[in-house]
């Protein structure tokens, strides 16, 4: 598994079936129905987070919390090292009779440094993993998918037959069904 989640890209895909929905309950129903029939759903696009949809889709829980922890440990060590090097090793300063070793007065900077490294370390990994970069062109399936429409994408070479898939989505409440070949969509 590479760092970037390649599954997010629609490039180099074959024929895609696209179901467009306008109600979150319908998407949920369609997802569950498709999955119960053994369809592998490529992705679902929603304008807002729908609770439980990732579970219904079978997305594994992200490991970003582990990443955050590791970044935090790195930050903690780096800051200890920094203060030790500057303040104890390289140029000790005796001010206000404070000892030149680890003291409670290191805690504030240790804390801030740890938080800084955790937040930005995790943030950068989050962007990379999500295939996000400034200026990258989004691959949209519907110009309202960031507004009020939800889109289910299924690859056509699935082990479930195409008519059933389309029928399932239609029954769950899809307002429009399309096929997409090489970036061009046609309404079915």
């Amino acid at each position: 598994m590479g760092l970037v989640d390649k599954g997010l890209s629609l490039r180099n895909r074959g024929r895609l079936l696209v179901g467009v929905f306008e109600d979150e309950d319908h998407v949920m129903a369609a997802t569950k129905a498709l999955r119960s029939k053994g369809t592998d759903i490529l992705d679902i696009y929603t304008p807002y987070p729908i609770h439980g949809l990732e579970v219904a889709l079978g997305v594994k829980r992200s490991n970003l919390s582990v990443v955050a922890f590791l970044c935090g440990m790195t930050g903690f060590s780096l800051v200890i090292l920094m203060i030790w090097y500057m303040y104890v090793h390289d140029w000790p300063m005796l001010i206000g009779n404070k000892p030149v070793r680890f003291t409670p007065s290191w805690v504030p900077i240790l804390f801030e440094g740890t938080v800084l490294c955790t937040a930005f370390g995790m943030g950068i990994i989050f962007f990379l993993r999500n295939r996000m970069l400034h200026g990258i062109q989004p691959e949209l399936l519907d110009d309202r998918q960031t507004d009020d429409r939800m889109v289910i994408v299924v690859e056509a070479d699935n082990n479930v037959d195409e008519a059933t898939m389309l029928q399932t989505m239609k029954e769950a409440g899809a307002v429009e069904l399309r096929e997409r070949i090489g970036g061009v969509q046609t309404v079915l």
Partner: peptide
């Protein structure tokens, strides 16, 4: 477009987004 970083609203993106 520059600042949206190519956001499409994929469920997987949302799951990570919420965790982050």
């Amino acid at each position: 477009n520059f600042f949206s970083m190519g956001w499409t609203g994929s469920v997987r993106s949302w799951a990570r987004y919420e965790l982050v």
